[in-house]
């Protein structure tokens, strides 16, 4: 059987984590290609629906990346994201899904290595979890 390759959707803020991901590339730091990034202006604009939709469509993990606490380009969007993620995790848990598939990380524009390490970590942890069962149910 082919090795399980998790599908990871990343919602990254334009100013910090997206720039950090760019820096990883500019510095030629290698990380697994499992992550597919959607650029948003701020982690605070991540709607709970985006995360739920990604999980329901079969993403094995979702990463929300924002600026470090206190460093948000829009003052406090990352705090809003943090609160929202807590809610989304609660919803997932209520529905009997694994909240461990949702990741939120603060990665600044200068932390290319941290971005690469984060992706690697998510891939490893998600491999332990196995494929998103929701996706398999859709496939019946």
């Amino acid at each position: 059987m082919e090795e399980f390759e998790p599908k990871i959707v990343g919602f990254l803020c334009n100013w910090c984590t997206y720039a950090g991901a760019d820096l990883a590339g500019t510095s030629r730091i290698q990380y697994p290609p499992n992550i597919r990034v959607i650029r948003l202006m701020c982690s605070g604009s991540v709607d709970s629906i985006y995360i739920m939709k990604a999980i329901l469509e079969g993403a094995d993990a979702v990463l929300i990346g924002g600026c470090h606490p206190g460093d948000c380009h829009y003052l406090n969007g990352n705090y809003k994201a943090r609160r929202k993620i807590v809610l989304v995790k609660n919803i997932l848990e209520t529905l009997g899904m694994e909240k461990e598939r949702i990741w939120i990380r603060w990665i600044s524009a200068s932390e290319g290595q941290k971005f690469a390490d984060t992706v690697r970590e998510i891939v490893e942890e998600t491999k332990k979890l196995g494929p998103n069962p929701v996706a398999q149910r859709w496939n019946i």
Binding site: A21, D22, L23, A24, G25, T26, I29, P33, R39
Partner: peptide, 12 residues
């Protein structure tokens, strides 16, 4: 973005 977040970050 297929350079910084693709060709430069992956070699496969």
């Amino acid at each position: 973005n297929i350079r910084e977040q693709c060709s430069w970050a992956h070699d496969d």
